[in-house]
Simulated scan of single mutants.
Amino acid sequence: MMAGMSTDRTSIAVLLPCYNEEMTIGKVVRDFHAALPDADIYVYDNNSTDHTAEIAANAGAIVRPEPRQGKGNVIRALFEDIDADVYVMADGDDTYPADAAPAMVTKVLDGYDMVIGDRLSSTYFTENKRPFHNVGNRVVRSAINGLFHADVTDIMTGYRAFSFTFVKTYPVLARGFEVETEMTIHSLNNNLRLYEMPIQYRDRPEGSVSKLDTVGDGIKVLSTIFRMIREYKPLPFFGGLGMIIGLIGFGLTASVTVDFMRTGMVERFPTLIGAVMLVIAGLLFIVTGIVLDVIAKNNRKTFLLEANRFAIMHRVIRDCSGAEAGSNTSK
């Protein structure tokens, strides 16, 4: 039987990745205990140099260490280690309201794969004191929604709830804070069931320091978007590049052709050779995009089959656990 599964209730796991959050983690754990009394609360300590782990344990959390630095690495460990029916993920900095968690859990039980705690529709832009973060959220949101024809309001929120199937089939590749962006793109690409729930975001309390590097982590987020577009949308990516390169080559070829028609001589051989190479390169990019697009579609089919297998496995285990519990009760 899977650890964390319950025979008489829905098992819920609250996941709190933490790094140096001794000022707030105790309150966060207590708030989630109050909001979800039956949930198991896990704090994965990511090499904290303060008393985060000790305070979390005293507040009633299950504390485990994760030596690989970075939020993405911590979430990968959480998803691998913990089995539950519903997962709620938040940060340990007390910026997300724990009292929104029961409604998020209900939405997952209603059949959604991921519930997104939407900060941007409520108080984020007034509470958040870092203007570059506000700009970054808008840029990332516009780019992803445009490319995936979606309408997700908060791409980068750290407050989410997941189904068992999502957690066990989502490949966590990111190592740092770009993991939330990766989650959203993964969900949109595979047409998963998403639900956005507005929440009341609040800024960190005075004295609590953010671990987010605006410039460094912003570059990582943008590079993640670039990489995932290349992998998930190869035809627009490589096809667009191919069209641009090919049109430049075609334009240069046309200029040499005009000169030839006027003078009867090819006076710019290097330009002609370069132009033809650009046209060939553009065609190769387009063909590459077509081939990779077929591969990407096959990968999506494989993912859906894998997700279906995990969903069936989860139902079978729950049914067997319930039957076993009923048999023990009758005895």
Rank of each mutant, 00 (worst) to 15 (best):
I25H: 07
N20L: 05
P37R: 11
G111E: 14
R64W: 08
R9D: 15
A59S: 15
I55Q: 04
A34H: 14
N58F: 02
A34T: 14
H51F: 06
G26M: 10
M2H: 06
I82G: 01
A34L: 08
I41V: 13
D83H: 02
A35Y: 12
L109K: 14
D94L: 15
F79P: 00
I82K: 01
E22Q: 11
M89C: 13
G117S: 13
V115D: 07
L109A: 07
A35C: 02
Q69D: 10
N58Q: 11
M104I: 11
E66V: 15
I12E: 01
A84Q: 00
D81T: 15
A101F: 07
M2A: 00
D99W: 10
A3E: 03
D91C: 07
D93C: 10
T10Q: 09
G117W: 05
H51E: 13
V43M: 12
R30N: 15
P37Y: 02
N73D: 10
D93H: 09
I116Q: 06
D94G: 03
H51S: 12
A34S: 13
R76K: 08
A90L: 05
P17S: 02
T24A: 02
T106H: 08
Y42W: 10
M23P: 06
M104G: 15
V28C: 09
G117D: 12
V115M: 01
D38Y: 04
V28A: 14
H33K: 13
A34E: 09
D50P: 03
A56T: 14
V108F: 01
E80Y: 03
A61P: 06
V88Y: 01
P102T: 06
Y112H: 14
V74A: 14
T106C: 01
C18N: 12
A57P: 09
L78C: 14
G60Q: 05
I12S: 00
V14E: 05
E66T: 11
D94Y: 13
A59H: 10
D99Y: 04
I41R: 03
V105H: 00
H33I: 13
A59N: 04
K107D: 14
V28N: 11
T52F: 04
V43Q: 08
Y96N: 12
A57S: 12
P97Y: 12
P37N: 11
T95P: 04
V63Y: 02
G60E: 08
D45S: 09
D31E: 15
L36P: 11
V28G: 14
A13F: 00
M114F: 01
G72N: 03
R68S: 08
E54R: 07
D50M: 10
K107T: 10
K27E: 12
D91H: 02
E80T: 05
E66G: 03
E21C: 05
E21T: 13
K27H: 10
A77G: 01
G72P: 15
A100G: 03
M114H: 00
P65M: 12
D31Y: 07
A53E: 15
L109E: 12
T24S: 09
E22P: 02
M104K: 07
F32V: 11
D83F: 01
D40Q: 01
P37M: 04
A101K: 05
A56K: 03
D110A: 15
D93V: 02
D40K: 06
D110Q: 14
D85Q: 00
T24G: 00
D81H: 08
D118G: 04
V88E: 05
Q69I: 11
A3M: 00
Y19G: 11
D83G: 05
A59I: 13
V108E: 12
S48Y: 11
G92E: 02
V74Q: 13
E66F: 07
I82F: 02
T52C: 00
